[in-house]
């Protein structure tokens, strides 16, 4: 069920088709060009000593792919796994090749065509989600969709730092 777009990426990557999904009752979107596939929720293998928003790793046809819990990443309350829960597998380019990771969605809704003029700037404050993860906001009819920045969400360059902080916390406790 891969839905990878073949059309060339538009110069302004926020426009174009977006995959819209639900998280804690709100709607979010990723550019479909960043979406490799959507897979059903499967059993995860926990990984020790990583930030707590990493739920674990899954076997994606022989490849080992980490899964990120956006609830934790965004500081939202945790949600139970339902039959609608699934993993959106994203791929973002990095210097060393494609970085592939999954994010958990409560429900995947649709692929939506978004025109440039529909997109507003990310809210400066007041939202529930850290604005650095948000690329823009679409307001259509009565819906509000937050377009997410896949690169930022998957970026793991500071995770080792996070790990260190965790460790220090741990040690302070002891």
């Amino acid at each position: 069920m891969a839905i990878v777009e073949t059309q060339a990426a538009s110069s302004w990557q926020r426009t174009g088709k977006h995959l819209v999904f639900r998280l804690e009752g709100e709607e979010y979107g990723f550019p479909v060009l960043k979406v490799q596939e959507i897979v059903r929720w499967t059993e995860l293998t926990r990984v020790p000593r990583v930030p707590d928003f990493i739920l674990g790793v899954i076997n994606l046809r022989g490849k080992v792919v980490p899964v990120i819990d956006l609830h934790v990443r965004f500081g939202l309350p945790p949600a139970p796994v339902t039959p609608r829960t699934c993993v959106i597998v994203l791929q973002v380019p990095r210097e060393s090749g494609l970085l592939v990771s999954g994010v958990v969605a409560d429900d995947v809704l649709e692929v939506l065509d978004v025109a440039a003029e529909q997109i507003g700037p990310p809210p400066e404050f007041g939202g529930r989600v850290n604005t650095e993860f948000i690329a823009g906001v679409v307001q259509a009819d009565s819906r509000v969709i937050l377009l997410l920045n896949a690169e930022k969400i998957l970026d793991n360059r500071d995770w080792t730092f996070v790990e260190k902080v965790l460790e220090e916390k741990e040690q302070a406790h002891e």
Binding site: R49, N156, W159
Partner: peptide, 13 residues
């Protein structure tokens, strides 16, 4: 399979 690309270095793994 290495996890370094996707998760960074994990001590002990």
């Amino acid at each position: 399979k290495s996890l370094r690309e996707s998760l960074g270095r994990i001590q002990g793994v």
